[in-house]
Design a protein around this nucleic acid. Structure first.
Length: 422
RNA sequence: GUGAGUGUAGCUCAAUCGGCAGAGCACCAGGAUGUGGCCCUGGGGGUCGCGGGUUCAAUCCCCGUCACUCACCCCA
C-alpha cells in the first residue's frame, strides 16, 4: 500500500512546476521594481498571533486553522495568511528594517482546513506585499498599481478591480449600529446564513450572493454615507490617483473583508463569472493591526495577497514543454554504456543538456526517446565507427547523418548552445 | 461543517440485467525502413479504492469506510 498525500495538499510536478517558478520570478521582478524586498517568515506561529489579528470570531480562526500543541504544550498554528506574521516580524526587528516606509513582499504556502474544491486547497500559496509606515493614500495607489501591473503582466485578462472603504474606529461603529438596525428590520427576508451572521459580522450580509438577500438589502445604508472627514478624504484621494493613473476600477460599497483587521481602503481583483472563487487577489489597509498585536507604536499599513493556485487556474492549463535536451546519446549494445556515460558527464560539464538511456534498450526505442526528449543531435555509439574513436552524429532537424571526431563534436555542440543563448 | 457525483491497466475510459476483465494511448520486443516518426506482428501489465454482508458464484446487489471531484459555506 502506497501512502496517499494529505487531503487538500498537492504535489506540484514538472513540467507544471516550471510555471510556478516563472510566476514567482515575475512577481519578484515586479516587486523589486516597486522597491519591495523579500521577507520569509516561519510557517509556524503562536496561535495567539492569528487569534488576535485575524479575529477570534472569523471562520478562519474558529474552524479552519491547523492548530496543535507542540511537545512543550504551547499552542502553535500553521499560518493561515501572511500579513500577521509579517507585522510580527516587523515589530520584532524594527530597527533592522530601516526608516519608513518599509516595503516587504513574500511568497509561500498558507494552511486552512477547508473542504477542498476547485481553486481552493488546504495548503495553498500566496504572493503578498505590504507597505508599512505611511498613511498616505499614495501608498494605497502604489500597491494597487503594483498589483494591477503584475496581474496584467501574467497575461490574465478580463479582471476587474473593485474598491471600497470600511471607515475607521471613528466612523465605523456608527455605521455598524445603523446597519444592524436595518438588518433587524429585514430579518424575515434574509437567508438562513445571513440571519446567523447578522449578529457576528453584519457587513458580511451585504456580500451575500443569495437573490433574496440582495433584494432585501438593496436599500441598506451605505458605508460611504457614514465616513468621517479623514476617511472620506482618504478614499477620494485613492480614487482620484487611480483615475489619474488610468487604472480602471469600480466602487463596490458592499464589498467586505473576511479578516477583522482591515480599515479604510479595501479591494479585490475579481473575474466576473467565476462563481464563489472569483477573487484572485485582495487586500486593504490595516492601520490598527500593529496595536492589536500589542505594539506601542502605531504602524499604518496597506497590502495585498494573491491566490497563486487561483491565478494559475485562470491562466489556463497550457502545459509548458519539459526541458529539451540538446544531445541524446544512443548506445548500440550495453558495452558502450561506460563510454557514453563519460561523454554525457563531459558534455554536461560544458553546459550542454545531455541525456542517455541507462537500460539496455533497443536502438529503435532509444531513438524514440531521443525524439521525445526534443534533442536536436543524437550521437550513436556502436560497432562501426565508435570503436575507432569516432561517433555517428545525426541532426534530428535536418535528418543529416555524418561522422565526426570527438573533438569536432564537442566543438559543435558547444557552439550550438552558445548560438541559442546569443 | 452541508449536499451531489465518481473510484476498473501507467493515462483516458468501456463492459458484465451476478458466471475466466476489455479498448485506445503509453510501455517492451520483433518486422518493414535511408538506424527515429508512419505502418505491421507479438508481448508484459489489474487484490475492478478498502472492509464487511447476501449468493454455488460479487468488479456488478446491500451496508460501512476511505479517497478524489464539484457545489454550498468561507476565503486568495
Amino acid at each position: 500500500m502506497t501512502i496517499p498525500p494529505v487531503r487538500g495538499m498537492k504535489d506540484i510536478l514538472p513540467p507544471a512546476s516550471a510555471r510556478w517558478v516563472a510566476l514567482e520570478t515575475a512577481f519578484r521582478d515586479c516587486a523589486t521594481r516597486f522597491g519591495f524586498t523579500e521577507i520569509r517568515t516561519p510557517i509556524l506561529e503562536k496561535t495567539e498571533l492569528f487569534a488576535r489579528s485575524v479575529g477570534e470570531t472569523t471562520d478562519i480562526v474558529e474552524k479552519e486553522m491547523y492548530t496543535f500543541s507542540d511537545r512543550s504544550g504551547e499552542s502553535l498554528t500553521m499560518r493561515p495568511e501572511g500579513t500577521a506574521p509579517v507585522v510580527r516580524a516587523l515589530q520584532a526587528h524594527r530597527a533592522a528594517l530601516g526608516e519608513w516606509p518599509v516595503r516587504l513582499f513574500y511568497t509561500g504556502p498558507m494552511f486552512r482546513h477547508e473542504r477542498p474544491q476547485k481553486g481552493r486547497l488546504r495548503q495553498f500559496h500566496q504572493f503578498g506585499a505590504e507597505v508599512f509606515g505611511t498613511d498616505s493614500p499614495l501608498a494605497d495607489a502604489e500597491v494597487l498599481t503594483f498589483l494591477n501591473r503584475f496581474l496584467n503582466g501574467t497575461g490574465l485578462r478580463g479582471i476587474s478591480l473593485e474598491i471600497n472603504t470600511l471607515g475607521d474606529p471613528d466612523c465605523r461603529p456608527a455605521y455598524h449600529r445603523k446597519l444592524s438596525d436595518f438588518l433587524s428590520s429585514r430579518e424575515d427576508r434574509l437567508c438562513d446564513d445571513c440571519r446567523r451572521r447578522r449578529g457576528q459580522n453584519p457587513l458580511r450580509v451585504l456580500d451575500c450572493k443569495a437573490e433574496e438577500c440582495m433584494r432585501a438589502t438593496v436599500d441598506a445604508p451605505s458605508v460611504l454615507d457614514f465616513l468621517c472627514d479623514p476617511c472620506r478624504a482618504h478614499f477620494a484621494s485613492v480614487e482620484g490617483t487611480l483615475g489619474e493613473s488610468g487604472i480602471p476600477f469600480v466602487r463596490n460599497p458592499r464589498m467586505v473583508r473576511g479578516l477583522d483587521y482591515y480599515r479604510r481602503t479595501t479591494f479585490e481583483f475579481i473575474i466576473p463569472g467565476m462563481g464563489a472563487q472569483n477573487a484572485v487577489a485582495a487586500g486593504g489597509r490595516y492601520d490598527g493591526l500593529a496595536e492589536i498585536l500589542g505594539g506601542k507604536e502605531r504602524i499604518p499599513a496597506i497590502g495585498f495577497a494573491i491566490g497563486v493556485e487561483r491565478l494559475l487556474m485562470l491562466l489556463g492549463e497550457e502545459k509548458p514543454r519539459g526541458l529539451a535536451s540538446d544531445v541524446y546519446l544512443v548506445t548500440s549494445g550495453s558495452r558502450f554504456l561506460p563510454e557514453a556515460f563519460r561523454w554525457k558527464m563531459e558534455l554536461i560539464g560544458m553546459g550542454i543538456r545531455t541525456e542517455m538511456d541507462y537500460e539496455d534498450r533497443s536502438v529503435k526505442s532509444q531513438f524514440r526517446r531521443a525524439d521525445r526528449s526534443g534533442a536536436r543531435f543524437v550521437v550513436v555509439f556502436g560497432e562501426s565507427e565508435a570503436e575507432r574513436g569516432k561517433v555517428g552524429v545525426r541532426d534530428m532537424a535536418k535528418g543529416a547523418q555524418e561522422e565526426l571526431a570527438k573533438e569536432e563534436a564537442f566543438r559543435r555542440f558547444g557552439r550550438l548552445v552558445d548560438d541559442k543563448e546569443g
